[in-house]
Design a protein around this nucleic acid. Sequence first.
DNA 1: GATTACTTTTTTGTATACAATAGAGCGAGC
DNA 2: GCTCGCTCTATTGTATACAAAAAAGTAATC
Lengths: 248, 248
Amino acid sequence: MSQVSRQVARRSAPPRRRTARRRAATTEAIVERIATAIAEHRLPPGTKLGEEALGEIFGVSRTKARQALHRLATDKLVTLLPHRGAFVAQPTVLEAREVFEARRVLEPAVVARFVDVATPDQIETLLEHHAREQAAIATNDARAAQRLLGWFHVLIAEMAGNRVLADVLRELVMRSSLITLLYQTTADSRRSSEEHRELIAHIEKREVEQAVELATRHLERVEAGLALREPSSEVVDLKSALAAAGAG
Amino acid sequence: MSQVSRQVARRSAPPRRRTARRRAATTEAIVERIATAIAEHRLPPGTKLGEEALGEIFGVSRTKARQALHRLATDKLVTLLPHRGAFVAQPTVLEAREVFEARRVLEPAVVARFVDVATPDQIETLLEHHAREQAAIATNDARAAQRLLGWFHVLIAEMAGNRVLADVLRELVMRSSLITLLYQTTADSRRSSEEHRELIAHIEKREVEQAVELATRHLERVEAGLALREPSSEVVDLKSALAAAGAG
DNA sequence: GATTACTTTTTTGTATACAATAGAGCGAGC
DNA sequence: GCTCGCTCTATTGTATACAAAAAAGTAATC
């Protein structure tokens, strides 16, 4: 697994206070910050996440930075290589397929559950979220769009009222954002957001069948937009590439 | 949430070597040991898990013990109370219902997948496992029986070939063992093991419909054997209990 | 005698120090 | 010229030291 040799830029700290950021950040907060940075691909896959560097950035010691990295590793957002450190994960094609298969199992069930219990307030919240999706798309803010499109699924899961399912799905959606980042060919955000709107309509009308069916199709379409073929045996590629390169 | 004030017994260490156990245990090993101890209810819910004590037992420093406890906490097998420490988790009734609902979503899908891909070798492994279940039941080894009955489900998930689903299910099965511990009324191990045997038969004959149906029924029956009613508002109980107690 | 405030002790949370491993840089040898 | 092996450096893994918080114990007051 070739890791990109990129480093998080630690601004050469003018030692202003005792801590770089205002207050001792909680581990939770650090995890959150790094996770969203990964999800919005401000930290591309393969990026080395040094403990020292992160500690400096968040104004904490290596202890906390390390804790955060280990928690991100259990969520599969970073890969830990023994004695080598933490890197933003690079999900394999197999992993990608497995994540989406799991989502195709969970999400229809979650949607079905939600259709039963959805309140007008919750529908309203979903519509507001959808409006934000549209706004992000309209302003060509790809990062925000991607984040919001993913979060829509988590939102429904949380509203459906089963914390266990919601937690699992949140993890899968986060991983999915890494996956789409690596393998997405055509990011048809507009289409996705439209389907979200449709789904809300079905939920509002308590049309379980249609809602479940749409959720499934939606996921299939998203997955179909990925280029999930094996990365054609990197070693061979490397060799031929070098042969052709010459005096590059 | 009232925590039982029980303590892990730290044998008053005669400082034999540098480490209590033979070699520096890996965090993974410690997690595993504690997890199985919980699953087999050698560590009952509410038991305090002190960092120092665990460190002594496994011959490591608090650092590793702490790491292990935090990882167990993410699996929901222990509860962390800030500045108070780690306790063996006491899943609530709500949590129990949610875990089983999640399993009812996942397991039929896993079984369906497995029916498609099952090899004779895998069937053989399942039969061997079933034999071990029977042996444990025959010798009245309730702990082993409970552990094996749970692990059967994990085994199928792992064989089904989707690592994501398998990981999620493993976590849920572990939590389930805590739940059955707390809420189980009638532990009909014999019946469960019989259903496992039936399921293997369906899988072997590639009878998807029946296999999925049985998996669902099996889970429903297990859940039905739990007393998942709210623990009648502890405060009130406490009050009346004390009034009645008098000179106990 | 029970309750409250204070002190002591224990345990967790965090930072730092030390040990061990991997990688880079550099030189010698074929 | 390339490879092999050494040293040196940088980073991770682990233990310990210190700080902070909660619990337990104790004394004083009503």
